[in-house]
Computed example of a mutant assay.
Amino acid sequence: MKAASLNRNNFIRQIRRRPLTLLGPLFLIVLTYWFFFTSSKPTSKYSYKTKKNGFFSRQHDVIPRNLPGDHIAHYDLNKLASTPMAVYNKEKVLILSPMSKFYNEYWSNLLRLTYPRELLELGFIVPRNKDGDLALKKLEKAIKQIQTGKKENRFSKITILRQDTESLDNQQEKHRHALKVQKERRAAMASARNSLVFSALGPYTSWVLWLDADIIESPPTLIQDLVSHDKPIISANCYQRYFDEEKKQDSIRPYDFNNWVESEEGLKIAENMADDEIIVEGYAEIATYRPLMAHFYDANGDKNTEMELDGVGGAAVLVKADVHRDGAMFPPFPFYHLIETEGFAKMAKRLGYQVFGLPNYLVYHYNE
């Protein structure tokens, strides 16, 4: 008992003389617990980042807040849905637009879309040439204006890429659509589309809308209308407004001939082609006699009429994100003698997905 009393007295005297020596280990234990198991919560689920050129990009914070430290993000892709009730289920839509020129009409039409902005992300890829430099300048100005404006008008996220592959210098319509440049042009476009979707597609994306940057008119409910069909891939019919000199009146004409149904003649042509040759639709030099969706438009028909397709264009095409996640991309090489968007349709069908078009549902291409 006497020895125990002496030990207690010695311990008390040591605490009084050297408190830090004995309390130091306890302090380290408390500090370690605080560092690993607590963290400060962000005050906002959004952050704004300013680039050197003054372009503001709105970044969505996708890190869950119920995890220790808020440094690990978990996504269960089995619970990610692409349904015909996309707005009700708050499904995120990624709009992707390769852009060689910036059209004010395209941007105005994009802003008229009625799908909730907080569920919309945008992605652009711009070529490295003079046209691309000018388009980028105009695009950044438009984005800065909308993303620094009212919160309810801002998009959830915007991504801009500069194309890392060579682009055609001449982007005028008559040169773009010359048959002799189609393989080179479509291969470059395929590479750009792949870079864009691989970079911008997120683990929370339900739908991808491919919307060409020269589509200047579409119904404001474009996304909801296409989503309602609940198809893996579905394309609108792309037309163009023009002035008919003979009739002296405004009129419309088909523009995109890449939405088609395969024909026996098309299959025979492919059989006799070399491995590196491609079929390009819409040219008299390669007469496939494929039924083209552009020719099935009925002004008095039901806009919800569907037709199954084998080839698809890129003007306004809605894709369930899982189609891309499963490996459907845009081949920049001959794939069953098809390339880019038509090759994408072929690849998707090889993966077991169906492709559809809406012949009576029109979007309009810019008329140069």
Rank of each mutant, 00 (worst) to 15 (best):
A4V: 08
N7T: 05
N9A: 12
N10A: 06
V30I: 15
Y33H: 07
Y33N: 07
F35C: 13
F36A: 12
S44Q: 11
K51R: 14
D61R: 09
L80C: 05
A81F: 09
T83Y: 06
A86N: 09
V87G: 00
N89T: 00
E91R: 04
V93E: 03
I95M: 12
P98V: 01
M99G: 04
K101C: 09
K101A: 14
F102V: 08
Y106I: 03
N109R: 07
L111W: 01
L119F: 13
E121C: 10
E121P: 02
E121G: 10
V126Y: 07
N129T: 01
G132Q: 04
K138C: 01
E140M: 14
Q145N: 13
K150N: 15
E152Y: 05
R154P: 09
T159A: 08
L161Y: 08
Q163H: 07
D164E: 15
D164R: 09
Q171M: 06
E173Q: 11
H177I: 07
V181T: 13
Q182T: 06
Q182Y: 10
E184A: 10
R185I: 02
A187F: 01
R193Q: 05
S199H: 13
P203C: 01
P203I: 04
S206A: 14
D212E: 15
A213I: 00
L222C: 04
I223S: 03
D225P: 00
S228R: 11
P232M: 06
C238Q: 10
D244P: 09
E245Q: 05
E246Q: 13
W260G: 00
E264N: 12
L267C: 02
N272G: 06
I279R: 03
V280P: 01
I286Q: 14
A287C: 02
R290M: 10
H295R: 08
N304W: 01
G314F: 04
G314M: 02
F335S: 03
E340N: 15
F344Y: 13
K346P: 00
R350S: 14
Y353I: 07
Q354N: 15
V355Q: 00
G357H: 03
N360H: 03
Y364V: 07
Y364R: 05
Y364H: 12
